[in-house]
């Protein structure tokens, strides 16, 4: 009798897990939809969103500042063997302290963030975090969850109005990722920074300084989209202990000189500015 019971139990358990396994081979949602959303559509979608951002904010074409951001990007990408060229950085004039990733590996950085950062390492930390969101495909997952696949197809096809594109941009710039995604991007950033010999402590410091603000002004957009900042700051410090690195500065020139470039974009003191930038870029190339 005991054998009969055991045999029948095994049959039930095997049937249950077997049926579950077979059914889970069918793609109901998620990755299938992601693949369906072809690269070309993703590109068009990012173009539409970028257009709606640049309609309301000026995109800064200051080659010198962009060169510095690009050099930080290269330093981060090279260590993780990422394709640097596919990541496109857009510097946008806004007092908001914000940076966010768009589909098709576009990254938008507001000048407010560069002005708030105390050094290039903090900016590198934020950039590494956003690259983490790109590499883990969090951007598309977030859009699918918040907006829906059908609407994304409509936007990419150019059939949606400007309002919808603007709303989509708002979702990416002002709503948070899932906590799980934020922690994944943090972990990615810590690893990338450590591999690039940049102390992840700077990213932690940046988080902590933002978290210390009791009354959040509207400009502090990045913290509103990145919740649990204090806990994550502590987690970054914990994670960085897992890596060995020699901290090397990104720029030899003071960060304030770079910030000046954002303010002083006229042709005044051009020689002096170019000298500062040339030094800064040279130093990053040496690293």
């Amino acid at each position: 009798m005991a054998n009969k019971i055991l045999t029948q139990l095994v049959v039930i358990v095997v049937s249950f897990f077997g049926l579950w396994f077979l059914l889970s081979q069918i793609e109901y949602i998620g990755e299938g939809d992601m693949h369906r959303f072809a690269k070309e559509s993703e590109k068009k979608l990012s173009e539409m969103i970028l257009e709606s951002i640049t309609n309301t904010h000026d995109e800064i074409e200051n080659e010198k500042v962009k060169a510095i951001l690009d050099s930080i990007k290269v330093r981060l990408c090279e260590t993780k063997k990422l394709d640097c060229d596919k990541i496109k950085i857009h510097l946008v004039r806004s007092s908001e302290i914000n940076a966010f990733a768009l589909p098709d590996h576009h990254m938008v950085i507001y000048t407010g963030l560069l002005e708030y950062a105390k050094n290039a390492e903090e900016v590198a930390g934020v950039m590494a975090h956003e690259i983490g969101h790109m590499e883990k495909n969090h951007v598309m997952k977030k859009l699918v969850k918040e907006i829906g696949m059908e609407m994304l197809f409509t936007i990419a096809a150019g059939d949606a109005g400007n309002d919808i594109s603007r709303e989509t941009a708002k979702v990416l710039s002002s709503t948070a990722f899932d906590r799980k995604h934020e922690r994944e991007a943090d972990a990615f950033a810590v690893e990338t920074l450590a591999n690039a010999d940049i102390d992840p402590q700077h990213l932690s410091n940046f988080f902590f300084r933002l978290a210390r603000k009791d009354n959040l002004p509207e400009e502090l957009a990045w913290i509103s989209t990145h919740p649990d900042t204090k806990e994550r700051s502590a987690e970054i410090i914990k994670q960085k202990k897992e890596y060995t690195y020699t901290s090397k500065p990104i720029l030899v020139t003071p960060w304030e000189s770079i910030q000046q470039l954002l303010v002083n974009t006229d042709d005044e003191d051009v020689d002096e500015i170019e000298e500062v930038v040339a030094d800064a870029i040279d130093s990053t190339e040496v690293e």
Binding site: L23, S24, I26, E27, I29, G30, D178
Partner: peptide, 15 residues
């Protein structure tokens, strides 16, 4: 929580 709707989850519900 932090979990997401996945194919495995939907398959479990059907099972």
């Amino acid at each position: 929580g932090d979990n997401e709707v996945s194919n495995t989850y939907i398959a479990y519900l059907i099972t």
